[in-house]
Structure formats: structure tokens, C-alpha cells
Design a protein around this nucleic acid. Structure first.
Lengths: 335, 335
DNA sequence: GTGAAAGCGCTAACAG
DNA sequence: CTGTTAGCGCTTTCAC
């Protein structure tokens, strides 16, 4: 448990000089700096971030608020964020706010208030007005990924465009009976990811003159969710579509599994396209629009670092460059 | 940014009395306590954990070291740990140490040394001797899940028994050509999860007099890993087994997907059994030995809390109660 | 360039 | 039961 005074004594300087040499602030002669560094290394000195925080107000820690850890997209983003944060010498404190759980409110009411971080990153968060209030009243920079609110810089995907692209791909192949799986029944078509993706589908259909053929089957944005919806879609032989536009890759994979269990070949008899660039896409012959969640994580950290580095006013939204790569395994409808 | 002195002033008491009332240490008259609490609530006072840590030495934070976030088992455990930690009023700092990455060494060498936690939880960590050294020299309680080292309390699964059970289930159905997918080629059969699971398979086969029929196809413990191995196993028609014992559910699901793409029905023509209790098991008709990773996460937090609460000597290993529930969808071999 | 002193916000003896 | 007095380990004016 050696402190900075030990280092100072060993190097034959005062605490303040040692501090300057270690943190890089103020003037220190090169010779002295070396001596201090050497001493620190020798006794394995590591500054108590705690004590430093107390005086500087900066914690070298950021809070990450994330609704799910165990969904592919979120897990992937989290790993990207962690990596990028480490590179900047920041620790990451995890706040897992699963919607509707008691821990979610405890986090917003209690844990965030401790302000053990210099800034906050929210991943795909859909905050209630109250939650948003608390977030903003933290008086720390907040950046968000995949959602936009006033006063918060964000990295955003153009969900409408992305989903539209997926749907247009299907239309381009000649499909007309295309159903969309994902989102909630009466979602607003702007405020949520699945809502915007539903919108992209609707837009594409309408533009292609297929507005009347439109069908939306709601589902949770998970693999089991996609499975359940897929079972429903495929089992109804009368209305069975020739293609499915899924709101996410997990949903799409679930739908594929459902189709296969029912004996429907994918993509031969049924074409399915998703959004995200899931690493399992290949295995399931899934056509998908690539998004690289990992890169999104890195991008949002960069944005936060900007905010921490003074640029306080940047509450502008930044559109993440979407790589619109469609893997071409989808089939034309049988005529 | 109101401090404890503001609360004290408002309640008409001294800082120390306010502190006692707030933290619950020492004697305070009920009347005073109420007055202080009221004042604190009124101005929305939240103690600076930082300052408190500086003097008490306790951070109300624990570090979680985990090699993967985006594998089902790990994600699930992480969510369990987070929940349990919140319930104890602890923050969770995430250290994602993917094997072989540069960030891994940076974490062990640099980040852990900051000691911003009261204790550490390692999840399925396979530390090098050097890493283990650093962990132990942290001078903080360390508990582990799924691995055992000297000087560290742990929650452990009986991997050998679990895998043996899975294999015996297959044998009981009448299978004799059973291959095991998982683990590395020359893994030691004690030090790693996949090694022990391989061992359980070998033990079961040997005990059933099938020692000569033994076949191990190595794979990464992931869905794509299981897929690749599954393709290999299924495509070799000559040696094609009638059943597969997989080292984890992800591997098993991968193998199932591989089999289906090759036109092999599962479980009709080929029986596959895994270990973990994956939530997708049902969807893939996977027979699995249930483990509830989430509960394991909770258990390991309990163990850490014990260690934090004084019980310093408890470096004993604790066996996690394994729920050996086999979902019976597996089929007998065709005769 | 370097050192002395003054806290950051809080808790923990120790008297009263 | 409550107030006073010291610091926790570090950074930061401000003289020198």
C-alpha cells in the first residue's frame, strides 16, 4: 500500500513534485521526472484513483446503461465499448436496466445518483420521461447509441433506411407477399428502433405499390420472439407469404428455425432478410444488412471522449455510417 | 452539489451527527435521525462514495472479470451477478478479458492495480500463473465461478458428472456410436471446463464398455464452433455416429443446425445432448442438462459477500447444486 | 523548477 | 447522545 509520499521520499522530492511528474501537469525538470518515475516503478506505485477523484472531480470511469446484456446486438456493442474505453484508460461500470424490472428503477433512482463516473453511455435505451430527467440532471455528459433525445449527443443508425433497404431487396427479387416481423402492435413509428424499422418496411411497400399487401406480425426482438412469430406466419397456409422482412437478425434467425421445423425451406421457398450483420447469418443462410455493432460501440465512446474533452455544446446527433452490405443468398419467389 | 455539511446545517447538527444518522453507525436519537434524513431528502443529498471510500477503504464496488460477454452462458451469468450485486448496493465494474487480446494483459497489469473494488469475481477464468499472482496480490477477496485455484473461494459445477450424465443418457437410449464435440485436442482433463466435460464423456463410455468407440471432435465452445464440428461429423458418412454429446448447449445447437443443413433429422436420426439449460433448447429440440447460469451468478455473489463480511479464511470450494434435468426429446437409435 | 500548505467530502476516534 | 478534531491520499495554488 505505498502512497505518493513514499515515491516522493524515495526520489528525494516533495509530494507535489512527485505528483506533477506522475500526472504530467506543471513544470518538472526532465531529470527529476525520470527519478520519480523510476521510484514509482520500483515500489510498484499506483495512484489511488479515489483520492485523485476527490480533488479533481474526474473519476476515469464511465457508466454504461444497457437494457440487455444477453442479446447479440447488445453484447456485441458492450464488448466494443469496453475495448474503446480501456484504450482511453477508463473503467466501465455496468448498469443493466432490463425494462420492467425493479432493479431498473433502483438504478435510475439510486445508483446513478452516486455519480461515480465522468460520463454516461446509454445503449438502445428507451427511457421514460422521468428516467430521462434523472439522466440529464446528473450534470455529466451523456451520449447515446441508437436513440435520440434532446440534450444528448448520439450515434444513430438510420433504422428506417436500413429496414427499407432490406424490404426493397425482397421486392427487387419479385416478392409481393412480404410480411414484417418485429416490434409491438401499436408502436409509434419514430421513437423506438423496432418502430422505425417497421416504418421502413411500410415505406418500401407503399412506394412499390404494395401498400395493400402490408402485414405486420409483432414479436419480441429476440430469437425466441422471432421463432414464435415465425411459427404463426408459416403455419397459416392461406396467408403464407413468400418472404419475410425481419426487424433484426435474431428475429430473422428465429423465423428461419420456425420455418424449417415446419418443413419450409429457407431461402428456397421462403426468403428472409434481417438487419444487424449477425455473425450467425452465414450458418442460417440469412440475408442481412450489416451494421457492425462493435464499431457502433467504438463510435459512441469517441463521441463521449469529445464531450469529456470540453466540447460541451455538441448535442448534435451524428449518423453512424451504415454499411449496406446485403449477403446475396436470398431467392426469387417461385412462380 | 450539496454536501453533508449542508445537510448538517439544515438539520441544525454537526457533520458527524449527520454522518452517523445517514450511515447508521453510532448513537443518534431517533428525533435527530429523522430530522437529518428529512433534510437530506429535502436537498436530494447523495453521499460521495469517493470521499467515503477514501476514509473507510471500502468502495461499494466489485470487479467482475469475464472472458466473454457475448456467449450465452457468460451473458446469463453476468446478468445474474449484476442483479445480485445491486441488491447488496454494490456497483459492478466490468473487466472483459478475452483470451489473447492486448486488453487482457492491460487489465491485469494496469486496471486491476487501481483496486477500485472491495472484491473480485472471476467467471470461468482460466488465468495464467502470472495473472493468478496479480489477482491474489490484490489483497482483496477473490471468488471464482467455474474454476478453482488455491486461495480462492469458488462456486463450481461438477463438469465431469454433468457431462457423464449427458453421455449416459445417450447410452441408456441404446446408442453406441457416440461422439463428443467440444474442447481442445490435447486439453488436460482437469484444469478447464471443456477438459472436464470431455472427461465425463470418456468416463461414461469406458464404464459402459464403449471405450474403444470413443471419438472426440474438438471445437470452440460457441455456436459457430459446434456448427463447424457438426458439419465435419455429419458429412463423414462412414463414421457417422448415431448420437452426439456436446460440451455445451451452444455447441449442441451449432451441431443441430449443421445436421439439418445436411438433411439429417434431429433427433430422429441423430440424437444430440448438451449441457447448460440454454433457453433456446426447446426451439432446437435440444436435450440438455440444466445448470441455470443465472443462479450460479447469484451464488457467487453470495460467496463474495461472505468473504467481504469478515469470513476471510473461507478458501473452500463450494459445489453448486446441479439440477440434473434432462428434457426428454432425444430419440433411440434406429435399429 | 520545486516545496509548503490548503483542502476535496467524508468518517472515526475522542471528549464532553 | 452530540460536537470537535484529525486525517484518508492526492492535486493544486502560491510563494520561493
Amino acid at each position: 500500500m505505498s502512497g505518493i509520499s513514499d515515491v516522493a521520499r524515495m526520489a528525494g522530492v516533495s509530494k507535489s513534485t512527485a505528483s506533477r511528474a506522475l500526472t504530467g501537469g506543471g513544470y518538472v525538470s526532465e531529470a527529476t521526472r525520470q527519478r520519480v518515475l523510476e521510484a514509482a516503478r520500483h515500489i510498484g506505485y499506483v495512484a489511488s484513483t479515489n483520492a485523485a477523484s476527490l480533488v479533481t472531480g474526474r473519476t476515469k470511469n464511465v457508466g454504461v446503461i444497457i437494457p440487455f446484456v444477453n442479446r447479440w446486438y447488445f453484447g456485441e456493442v458492450l464488448e466494443g465499448v469496453e475495448d474503446a474505453l480501456l484504450a482511453c484508460d477508463y473503467d466501465l461500470t455496468l448498469y443493466n436496466v432490463r425494462p420492467g424490472t425493479p432493479s431498473r428503477s433502483r438504478i435510475f433512482e439510486h445508483f446513478l445518483a452516486r455519480k461515480r463516473f465522468d460520463g454516461v453511455i446509454t445503449i438502445g435505451l428507451d427511457p421514460s420521461p422521468d428516467e430521462l430527467d434523472r439522466l440529464l440532471s446528473l450534470d455529466r455528459p451523456v451520449v447515446s447509441l441508437g436513440a435520440q433525445y434532446d440534450g444528448v449527443s448520439s450515434v444513430a443508425i438510420d433504422d428506417v433506411a436500413v429496414s427499407r433497404l432490406a424490404t426493397e431487396h425482397l421486392i427487387g427479387l419479385g416478392h409481393t407477399r412480404i410480411v414484417h416481423i418485429g416490434g409491438e402492435r401499436s408502436a409509434d413509428l419514430t421513437g423506438t428502433v423496432h418502430g422505425r424499422r417497421l416504418r421502413g418496411y411500410l415505406d418500401a411497400m407503399t412506394d412499390a405499390g404494395l401498400g395493400a399487401e402490408t402485414l405486420h406480425v409483432p414479436s419480441e426482438m429476440t430469437l425466441p420472439g422471432g421463432y414464435a412469430a415465425g411459427v404463426q406466419v408459416v403455419s397459416n397456409l392461406r396467408s403464407r407469404p413468400t418472404a419475410i422482412s425481419a426487424a433484426s437478425d435474431e428475429v430473422a434467425v428465429g423465423a428461419i428455425v420456425a420455418a424449417r421445423r415446419t418443413g419450409v425451406q429457407v431461402p428456397a421457398e421462403l426468403s428472409i432478410v434481417g438487419v444487424d450483420g449477425h455473425e450467425y447469418a452465414e450458418m442460417f443462410s440469412l440475408t442481412t444488412v450489416e451494421q457492425s455493432p462493435r464499431e457502433q460501440g467504438v463510435a459512441v465512446v469517441e463521441l463521449l471522449m469529445d464531450a469529456l474533452g470540453g466540447r460541451q455544446e455538441s448535442t448534435t446527433a451524428l449518423l453512424h455510417p451504415t454499411r449496406l452490405v446485403v449477403r446475396s443468398t436470398t431467392a426469387r419467389p417461385r412462380t
